[in-house]
Structures are given as structure tokens and as C-alpha cells.
Design a protein around this nucleic acid. Structure first.
Lengths: 187, 187
DNA sequence: CAGTGTGAAGCACTTCACAGCC
DNA sequence: GGCTGTGAAGTGCTTCACACTG
């Protein structure tokens, strides 16, 4: 953060986040009021409160399903563990891939997921399989008792409402840029 | 799509997209009215209109900056070319990486970007560099005349307002799931 | 009569503005 | 005096509902 300020006021994170100070205060006040009037927010306290609220005090176990380009890249990406997300397993259904190692993890057959889940229960599943297998995979994951899914497949997933889903679709993001470029000046 | 319907009505894409038929009609009507009352929308016409609106009729040239885990994975990911986004170059500043090949592309030194840009102008830049280099990279990209950026660095980028920016932050997505899991039942 | 196109109502999120506290 | 916390006003998006048309 800033060079060791013990306290910050709402307009600084606002500027960073591209929003307004009022917004920041409203958001924070939703969880209670832990700022000091005339002073701002104590940085250590704010940080610890937010970590608690976001559930970042603990480590989450993440499994990756699909050891293709995206799945493998995620498994190797060390940014996750730094943020408290430990990848505990990676699965695929391709015999060619099963048994290979990715960043210290052996790719396991997807059939193992249900039994694995009993012993080493993971909380989050990353779905990185082809679009047409996405729903079946999601069903499997839900069946295994996992309640949070991040999916890279460009398909809306149908899951019970107590399961949280985040979709990431990079092609769609690019299409957003394409739209922006197209509907600006005529190149 | 559905098995060869010549026409669809607003509630079908609505269901797929997880929204309502009214929403779909409003969105489409923003660009003009090309549905037939009592019938629906002609699939070929709708498709071609949307492709035109989104700017997907042409191929866009994309460069990737940063040949680390994420950059390399993107370069190898063939989903982009299928959607009309051709990766034309990949850059890095690490001498160890420069000259290596990634999916048929030779990693080029970042210094070449300005001169490359003159000859083979790309429209979209993907920034996949460490967070602390993101802003400098963005400046470089803007300097080179590129008007659309997709960034994987967890930093807000400051760019001229005629430059479109899309941020992708997977750790933040995971934090969203963490929040959802934490603020559900007490596990 | 099925299904679009669209004003009008409803709703949620954002910004304003200011009393209250440090 | 500075800055939070928060009702009140404002703004834009979403849903409703229905006249209209092929």
C-alpha cells in the first residue's frame, strides 16, 4: 500500500478502484462501521476485517477439471497459492493425459472425483473442459458436494441455487473490445 | 444452435442467457427492429446483424505482451482464432524467453513493439505482465497506437479515454467464490 | 394469435449532502 | 477541521403490460 500510512480515508481506495469515496464508505458500512470520523480507517484493522469478510483467512482447496491448455496453465499459475487458493488435484478424461504431471500434480482420471471428494474434500472446482462437456462436469462436481464453481466454458451452467458459479469467458471479453473498437470512429 | 430453426422468438435466447424475453427484445431494439411480430427473429439475419454490430465480420489482430504462464497459455489457446482473433505477435523483456517459440510465434523483445506497430498494426493488446509493470506496458501499447487492451494484471490502468480496457482478474473471481462460501451456511 | 416493440412502472444501485464524532 | 456514516434524492437498468402486426 502507500508507504506505511497507519490510516487511510475513503477517497484513496476510491481513486485506486476507479470509484467514489461515497461508494467506498457505503460498501464498507454494509459490514459495520469501523472507521474513525475525522481520521479514516486503520489500515491493519481494515485489512483484517476485509480478509475475514471475504473469507481469505483460511486456505481454500481448489480442484481443476480439464487438463487442456487452460487447465494446465491454471495449475502452473502460482498467483493462486499466494492468494490462499491451493490447487489439490487436476482431472481429465483423456487417457493420453492421465498420469502426466503438471507442476507437481498428477493428472487423475475424472472417475476418481467422487471418491476423492470423500477423503480430501475440496471447496472450489475450476471447470476447464470443452463447452459441450461443461454441464455434465458441473453435475459431477455438484454431486461431489462442491459448492463453488469457476467455469471457463462458454455455456451457462444449471446448478442448484446453493452452488455459487463464476463464469470466465475470454473470447467474450475480446468481443467486448471488438464492439468498442467497431463503434468508435471508423478506424 | 437448435436444430435448424429458421426463426426464434425472444424467450429462447433469454432462457439460454439466463435473462428474460423482455430484456432480449429491449436489447435488440436498441439497434433497430428486425424481428417479425407473431413470428420471431430470422436466425440468419439476426446472426449476421449481431456479427456486424459486434464487429465480428473482420479478423482482429491481437498481440500478447508477457510470455509468462498466462501469456504463453493464451498464445497456445486456439479458441481465439476460431472467434476471429488472430494472435500476430508475442513480446517479453526476459532475454531467456526472447527467441523461443510459442505455438509458431517467436517471442520478440518488447523494444520491438513500437517499430512493429508501424508495419503490422494490431488492434488489440493483451497485457500479461507482472502487476508492477502493467502501467508502463499499457503506456507503451497506447503509444503504439493500440486502442483496446485486455489486461490480466491486478492493477487499474490509466489510459486515454479513447482506449478501451477490459480487466480479467482470476484471483479476484476466486475471492468472489470465497466470499460466497463464507457467507453461506457456517460450513 | 403468437410474438415484437415500447412507453410506463418498479427497483436497485449511486451520488449527494450533511449531521455527528474524533 | 477532517472524515465517517447514512438518510434522501437522483439515475439508469429491468420488468411489466399491452397496442400492434404478420
Amino acid at each position: 500500500m502507500e508507504r506505511g500510512h497507519a490510516t487511510i480515508s475513503s477517497d484513496e481506495p476510491a481513486a485506486r478502484g476507479g470509484t467514489t469515496s461515497a461508494q467506498v464508505r457505503k460498501d464498507l458500512s454494509f459490514f459495520g462501521s469501523f472507521g474513525k470520523r475525522g481520521l479514516g480507517y486503520s489500515v491493519p484493522e481494515l485489512s483484517s476485517r476485509l480478509r475475514k469478510i471475504l473469507g481469505l483467512e483460511r486456505e481454500w482447496r481448489v480442484i481443476i477439471i480439464g487438463a487442456g491448455k487452460i487447465g494446465a496453465a491454471l495449475a502452473q499459475y502460482h498467483g493462486f497459492i499466494e492468494r490462499g487458493f491451493r490447487i489439490t488435484a487436476i482431472y481429465d478424461n483423456d487417457p493420453q493425459k492421465i498420469g502426466r504431471e503438471v507442476d507437481g500434480l498428477t493428472i487423475r482420471p475424472i472417475e476418481c472425483l467422487p471418491t476423492d471428494a470423500e477423503s480430501a474434500e475440496a471447496e472450489i472446482a475450476v471447470i476447464a473442459v470443452p463447452a459441450n462437456a461443461a454441464q455434465a462436469t458441473a453435475d459431477l462436481v455438484v454431486e461431489a458436494g462442491i459448492q463453488a464453481i469457476m467455469s471457463f466454458a462458454p455455456r451457462r451452467l444449471t446448478v442448484p441455487e446453493d452452488v455459487a458459479v463464476k463464469m470466465v469467458n475470454m473470447a467474450m471479453e475480446l468481443e467486448g473490445l471488438s464492439f468498442a473498437l467497431t463503434n468508435r470512429q471508423p478506424a
